[in-house]
Design a binder for these strands. Structure first.
Lengths: 350, 350
DNA sequence: TTGTACGCGTTATCAA
DNA sequence: TTGATAACGCGTACAA
């Protein structure tokens, strides 16, 4: 298993290494005759291009990084698929890392990318990432696209969803169904996404002349369990609440549990809207009406933008905010599309 | 943003580049005094190690590839998390690619890994991958671990689950609940996993003196929709069937739909066991009893094995078959653990 | 088309 | 014992 080098191929073809290199990359003007000789030699020798040598010479690479905090989350799985597809289209290799919300792992990954001369990265930063992280990143001068988690730093490109509009749509839907006492459940207090979603929620209420009740806006951890716990206490205390906009689908699922525990049936005695459009939303009963954020599209757009930056696009940083869509299923007591109609349900293992 | 090289650091510290290199990697014998001088110079200069140069010189790298066919599938998301975690522990970078069942994309990825001198790979090959693909891979002489999809090639390491034992457990459970007329639903006819699962199913029936009825063993596509369609036709034709082992959870969810459509309630009039233990299993009603295949653990084990191969482990190829576990929920009319108890439900977006 | 210097860290050899 | 020198890995780009 000896590695064949350009020079060896060149010798075999009776030309110089430079010529072979140009043939390989379709550069320069090579006569048809020699080109064919070279191609034959390449084929015969079983030559494997050494990208490492090329990268060293070019001080660059064709490798980009993707940092997530939880790849097991279906939302990020979708996003990764979108990004991966886009990267392959441009012959870029994708490094994946899972920070698991650890700032240290996150830093290690970025450092590692730098050592490997990655040509760009897509980041969904860990919670509570210090500003110093982003400052250091800017100094690196390497294209970096932020995704999903909004960042208050105008120097970075960002691709995400319109949290504000999303909850506006959700809230309007509930108002149109006749609800007036609506709660907002979920999210952690220091989340930027949450601020935006609450903004959409309260502004829509106010447009209809309803004053938001701050006691009815509660935060939870990002789990079904905590969603259930918090919702139970909220709804026991304020039985007059008849509907809720949830920060995430996962929290909405918890609220469903809580409702049943206190003897109220979601979709009949209580209306519920989630956010994210995860696969599970369409599977529970009643199927959860939710705001879809087009995870795959976020990945695709991030990839497209990153690629343009790598190509040298020097335009000012962009914020690409994808429009959300309200997926109306059953949890608000009204079924526009049957739960079995979702494309999301066509998944499988193996 | 000029790149600092080893030589520049060396000059700054008043030593040679060789010395700095040795300090960086803790090799050779360097006096404490010079070591400290070098470390200081490294720190002051903001030096970034050039892994590419090192890789070129060493004819190796610290990069491994992971090939999947569907990263959006929760099962593979879990597996990826397990592998990613293991890779980070060993300072290896993980390339991810999604073949989407395309042999061409798969080949492109592997070729790309070769050009980049990846030091190993983990593959869940696309369906209908030709033997030539695996033959070519062997000639490359690079550590490759196969996962999940069983491969009839003793030359490759394999990490997966015990499909045979898994359906044996599922089938036994149904038999113990008193069922005699049991169907097997799902899987595509040319799947190796499916053969193994059917083996576990029929052998368990035979042990109890029940002859498997081949009309009750049907294949479906890997989607909820097709599962529902096939199940409806099967159960209409053979109403005497009272239980089913499903090839996948996703198919089991489809069977549930079909049951309701023909007026039978899963968990009460019909017992159902799935396979995979995907998140959705615990969320549907009744919660689906399923065979858990420890996706994360498969990833972790594959990573561990791959790392040992990279380190030079020359033992004969291994087949690591992880034991499945029967997760008994509600779909067989018996609830040992409440559906809300699953750790799987603690997920969230953002 | 080709010769050749170059990108940068590594390691074997040699000097002190 | 400690550290320096120089050849080397392999593809690229510019001058000839």
């Amino acid at each position: 298993m000896t590695t064949v080098t350009l020079a060896q191929v060149a010798q075999q073809a009776g030309v110089s290494a430079a010529t072979v290199s140009m043939v390989l990359r379709n550069r320069g003007r090579i006569s048809q005759a020699t080109r064919e000789r070279v191609l034959k030699a390449l084929d015969d020798s079983g030559y494997v291009y050494n990208q490492t040598a090329a990268n060293l010479r070019n001080r660059s690479s064709n490798q980009v990084g993707l940092l997530l905090h939880d790849i097991t989350n279906p939302f990020y799985g979708e996003m990764t698929a979108g990004l991966s597809h886009e990267m392959e289209r441009h012959d870029l290799l994708l490094f994946l890392a899972n920070s698991e919300e650890s700032g240290e792992r996150q830093q290690n990954f970025v450092d590692s990318l730098m050592r490997n001369s990655a040509c760009g990265m897509v980041l969904c930063a860990a919670r509570d990432t210090p500003p110093s992280f982003f400052e250091a990143l800017k100094r690196r001068n390497i294209p970096a696209i932020m995704v999903v988690r909004p960042l208050n730093d105008p120097d970075f490109d960002f691709v995400g969803t319109d949290n504000f509009l999303g909850t506006q749509m959700a809230t309007s839907h509930l108002l149109n169904m006749g609800h007036k006492n609506i709660a907002f459940i979920g999210g952690s207090p220091n989340s930027g996404s949450r601020s935006q979603r609450i903004g959409g929620f309260t502004s829509t209420l106010l447009e209809k002349g309803i004053s938001p009740n701050s006691d009815w806006i509660v935060s939870t951890q990002a789990s079904q369990l905590d969603g259930a716990k918090v919702a139970e206490s909220l709804l026991t205390r304020y039985p007059e609440i008849t509907a809720a906009v949830c920060y995430q689908d996962i929290v909405a699922l918890g609220v469903m549990q809580a409702l049943r525990k206190i003897g109220r049936e979601p979709g009949r005695d209580f209306a519920l809207v989630g956010f994210d459009d995860i696969t599970e939303a369409a599977l529970v009963q009643p199927a959860l009406t939710t705001v879809s954020v087009a995870a795959k599209e976020i990945g695709r757009m991030a990839g497209e933008l990153l690629y343009s930056r790598i190509r040298g696009n020097e335009e000012p940083p962009k914020r690409i905010i994808l429009p959300p869509a309200l997926v109306i299923l059953e949890s608000c007591g009204y079924s526009a599309t049957p739960a079995t109609g979702s494309a999301k349900q066509q998944k499988a293992v193996m």
